[in-house]
Design a protein around this nucleic acid. Structure first.
Length: 408
RNA sequence: GGGCGGGUUCCAGAGCGGUCAAAUGGGGCAGACUGUAAAUCUGCUGGCGUUAUGCCUUCGGAGGUUCGAAUCCUUCCCCGCCCA
């Protein structure tokens, strides 16, 4: 499934069919097609750019939507260019909601990048990609250079971007350098002479701006391929690490499976299509079956969950994740494998639960006990003064946190 | 530079000398109901606890007034709007 057999230089029409599948938007469409045709005609691979944020090495299945598309470009013989945004990371971003976004050191950026590409490697062939750091060129710009670039864009153009527009109207601060960041991204496209830039739909503005800068630089502007943003497991907001609603590529099978099972029903088909890369046809079928009741939503989710786990961990892991899930939640049994923690045992339940890392503070532990959310060996414990005797105990907190506690 | 309005607990946002660990909503967590879904209902949502109308830390920073401050004063920092 993740093979990298190059299907180099298929006819442009065929490439277009593959590459346009599942995208949210391609702009401008005719330019995109023209580029493909030229690439085939002149046997020159297209240069496909993806920018990456070096501060977040935790990739999730939302990122995979974009990476998978990138993989297709790669398989079709095109050149993938990753751009590590280390320049802005080194400067740090003093603005906005993320107050504590400290400037990263060179070492940190490098470590992040390593971890980033390890994860990218799960989806596509990193060795065949071109990897660049934008500090390479951005750090060399003089102030005069920056002014020259800034002169190419007007303030009202910048304010067209939705989040600037909204903040402006709400009288919320917009720091000047924030307006500069899209320019920096655009310069990346100029520097690597991108034919195509790939990203989520939230990048539309930035990518379009890059086209302007490319034109100013006398280059043919890039075509833009926007992929849908996958909603997080909460079903409301887009998947993101900071919102904690994500399924990481590195999540273990059980975790992955469970997270899929907890998504709202409305998301099932979307996950099927964009997380497990079901074809449009398959997605339509599932949608139909859900509608006419021939497929129970729970089973549909299990199907998606199993398919997702299989994709990243293999069929066997997927099957056992499913069995494990059924055992825990359909049959309310204790999971097969539980982490074991050794403690000096006669210990109050409150302290034990904190020591085992199930809960962050003793107050929280007391709260949970009072609310009936703590079980010891299958029995609900509501006495906050309860003590764990010597021996071995299976402690459950909430619906899914299990731990085996043994005396030392 | 001037005028005005602001900075509160995860977020939004009340509070404007004690009854404030701080209204309300959102989010989160737990419980009930379920399909570990949604909706709904209930409770909780700083820490520590000998569980006591208890103690400690928190309302941009630093000082001060007061028996007592998120609330008053001084000063500093930061943000928004308008004028220049």
């Amino acid at each position: 499934m993740l093979s990298n057999v190059p299907r180099a230089m298929l006819p442009a029409e065929e490439q277009f069919r593959i590459l346009s599948d599942g995208v949210a938007e391609i702009l401008p469409l005719d330019e995109f097609r023209a580029k493909l045709e030229r690439a085939v005609r002149t046997r020159t691979p297209l240069r496909v750019k993806l920018g990456c944020d070096p501060s977040r090495p935790d990739l999730h299945i939302g990122h995979a939507v974009v990476l998978e598309k990138l993989r297709q470009f790669q398989e079709l013989g095109h050149t993938v260019i990753f751009i590590i945004g280390d320049f802005t990371a080194m400067i740090g971003d003093p603005s906005g909601r993320t107050k504590t976004r400290p400037a990263l050191t060179l070492e940190e950026t490098q470590a992040n990048a390593r971890s980033y590409f390890e994860q990218v490697g799960i989806v596509l062939d990193v060795a065949r990609a071109e990897i660049r750091s934008n500090s390479e060129w951005l750090s060399r710009l003089t102030f005069a250079d920056v002014i020259r670039v800034a002169a190419q864009v007007t303030v009202s153009q910048m304010l067209e971007r939705d989040d600037f527009h909204q903040r402006f109207n709400r009288e919320q601060p917009i720091a000047l350098h924030e307006l500069l960041y899209p320019l920096a991204q655009g310069l990346d496209s100029v520097e690597v002479r991108a034919d195509i830039e790939l990203g989520g739909t939230d990048q539309r503005f930035n990518f379009l701006l890059a086209r302007e800068l490319q034109k100013h630089a006398g280059q043919e502007p890039q075509a833009i391929v926007l992929m849908p943003l996958l909603e997080g497991t909460d079903g409301v907001q887009k998947m993101s690490k900071s919102l904690g609603n994500y399924i990481a590529l590195l999540d273990p099978p059980r975790e992955m499976f469970g997270k899929v099972m907890s998504i709202p029903d409305e998301l099932i088909v979307r996950y099927y299509r964009y997380a497990t890369f079901a074809s449009a046809e398959e997605a339509r079928t599932m949608e139909q079956q859900l509608r006419d009741g021939s497929l129970h939503p729970r089973d549909a989710k299990a199907l998606v969950a199993e398919r997702l786990v299989a994709r990243y961990h293999g069929e066997d892991a997927a099957r056992s994740a499913r069995e494990e899930f059924d055992r825990m939640f359909r049959h309310k049994e204790v999971p097969e494998e539980i982490e074991t923690i050794a403690l000096h045992l006669p210990l109050s339940l409150v302290e034990a639960v904190v020591a085992a890392g199930l809960v962050p503070s003793k107050s929280e532990a007391r709260r949970l006990i009072a609310q009936g959310g703590v079980y010891v060996n299958g029995e609900r414990v509501t006495d906050h003064a309860a003590v764990l005797a010597r021996g071995e105990h299976i402690v459950k907190v909430g619906k899914r946190r299990f731990v085996r506690i043994q005396s030392v």
